[in-house]
Design a protein around this nucleic acid. Structure first.
Lengths: 336, 336
DNA sequence: AAGCAAATTGACAGCGCTGTCATCCCTGTC
DNA sequence: GACAGGGATGACAGCGCTGTCAATTTGCTT
């Protein structure tokens, strides 16, 4: 039969309540008692029953990770974040559940409510692009569910963020350093924070280098391979073609490379291409893609850690900044 | 305050136990009563408390999806399976948790035990390659935890499977139909079922077409991009090169295409290449990859459904076969 | 109309833990 | 040496549901 808290109490010669206190790291237990109880738990390989704990204690030890499966960013990205979140949850013996939610759909809030009512998560981790979906945040606050965000646009919350604008600026400066002056940018989905930051970084780099921005070189994309192809065709049809393209993510950059093939442009000889995200794809292309690496797994872990700090009453949590890595590979070269 | 089962009982004018029976679809409730209780539940938007249910009923309504994060197959593949599993679990109001487990590590079983002791899943879904890891299956049986598998090698269990051998045969027959006779095969990791089936399908197709197998054309890979490159270099160094390469998955096929670039071989003009899995990458390559599509999401869903059938006492569950799709794209062409 | 089995319903305890509040025991103080 | 104050500990009820078993009702037979 399973070992119960009561059994540990008997073995340690204390009351069940004291064992409970030790289990939950509560105050007002003498060091000697605490040690004795810990030893008994260890010896008996005691595992608290999560359902009993949550029923009596009115908390679930559950963290839900929410993601949008409508216009899904690369699934690899989410998988890495998920791994990181899981790692943090495991460390504190919380369990994690994942929830796809369609941001566009009008029963979004109803589904969110159902999630909360059905599973009672103690907190949630939000992933892009739903990190900044106002109705969601509002509802979470109304229902008193704490949350932490991965790459939120707005400040003020807790979670984790990379300085995407600085990263975008760095990659464009890399192109400028190779002598490029006609540098195009393929923008991502309009309301994604990522699109805004990356565009801002692009502009900042050009401005700092004293290169005037040509509006024809900034074209709209949608973070997909196909939109990259379309955008690139538009660019290649210009009288004065760009010599380099900075796409707001790797998938679109891949599309640009495809379109370059169609137009007989050799990458990087005739055209430099770079992306953002460092998906596995980026390494496998030929030539491999110059891009920005986000430490997604770390970011997931850190966001979850911040959330857990709040849930465990260990301070208010913060918005942590993590560094980016500029991955220079074969897809960028000196201007022809 | 939250609506409890007792409140529903009062509203419907029955005992709590009767509401419980309706909630759990148990027998021995008259239709009239059942209807009345259902109406009351609906009207009050009753949500059973999962912890109370599992504490009292000694089951968790939890399905764990296990995957190997050591030699991880494409994360996209797992993400799709995960989505499918989640869909099935949702339909029956089960919750799902995901668990990475390192198959090679020697504390594998300890971690499995910890998962079971800590979270008490009612059942687990196994994904390749851990679907056939004997110590795992043994331990699950010992602890009485039902499981369903995605693409298991052995028969006898429940879950879902695609006829990979037939699929491999079909893709090789496609190459034969294009006039190819020197068809190479890059094999996957030795102990994966996928490798065996795909190799068997390759041989079957050749034999059926009366083409003698050249052992030099069958080279070992490891399901990774890099191993595809290495294998292809080996093939291209042969006095008599193959005119087509069938790689056991898309990542390796991509590696083959990369290596072809190195050797100045044009795909598909000088060399036809095909893969297996239809990863997003396959569509984004240039030329796009001829490959086999597995309905991964459906497979996840079906495996979970079979497991849930068992958990809900709805029969023994079975091993379902799903159809494959041969995706013909630009990477294969008539023999030069 | 009586008698019986089967179907339906309910009373009650208890799953394993934690919140609340009472009790006990130690300090240090004057 | 008496007493306040605070830290350490425990008794007890109850979280929201289900298992067990007993009580009641129903439908059928003769």
């Amino acid at each position: 039969m399973r070992v119960r808290l009561e059994d540990v109490a008997r073995a340690a010669g204390v009351s069940p309540k004291t064992v409970s206190r030790v289990l939950n790291d509560e105050a007002n237990v003498s060091d000697a008692t605490r040690k004795r109880v810990r030893a008994a738990m260890e010896a008996m390989d005691y595992r608290p029953h999560p359902s009993a704990r949550s029923l009596a204690g009115n908390r679930s030890f559950l963290v839900a990770m929410l993601y949008d499966n409508n216009d899904n960013p690369a699934s690899t990205y989410l998988a890495e974040i998920q791994d990181g979140v899981l790692e943090a949850c495991d460390a504190y013996r919380y369990s994690m559940m994942v929830r796809p939610l369609r941001m566009r759909s009008d029963d979004f809030i109803r589904r969110l409510d159902a999630l909360i009512s059905d599973h009672h998560p103690d907190g949630v981790v939000l992933t892009p692009p739903i990190t900044d979906y106002a109705p969601l945040l509002k509802r979470l606050r109304e229902r008193g569910v704490p949350y932490a965000s991965v790459s939120p646009q707005s400040d003020g919350g807790i979670g984790v963020r990379m300085d995407e604008q600085a990263a975008a600026r760095a990659i464009v400066e890399h192109l400028l350093g190779l002598g490029h002056r006609r540098i195009a940018h393929v923008v991502g989905i309009a309301d994604h924070g990522a699109s805004r930051w990356r565009l801002a970084g692009y502009r900042e780099a050009l401005a700092a280098a004293g290169v005037a921005e040509d509006p024809a070189l900034v074209v709209q994309g949608a973070f997909t391979f196909g939109s990259g192809v379309t955008a690139a065709r538009e660019l290649f049809a210009l009288k004065q073609r760009p010599t380099a393209v900075f796409a707001a993510n790797d998938d679109m950059a891949t599309g640009v490379m495809w379109a370059a093939g169609e137009y007989g442009l050799k990458v990087p000889h005739d055209l430099s291409v770079c992306g953002f995200d460092d998906t596995p794809l980026a390494r496998q292309l030929w030539p491999a893609l110059t891009t920005i690496r986000q430490p997604s797994r770390d970011m997931g872990r850190i966001a979850a850690q911040q959330l857990l700090a709040v849930l465990r009453g260990r301070g208010p949590g913060e918005l942590v900044q993590v560094p980016f890595v500029l991955q220079i590979r074969g897809s960028t070269a000196r201007v022809p």
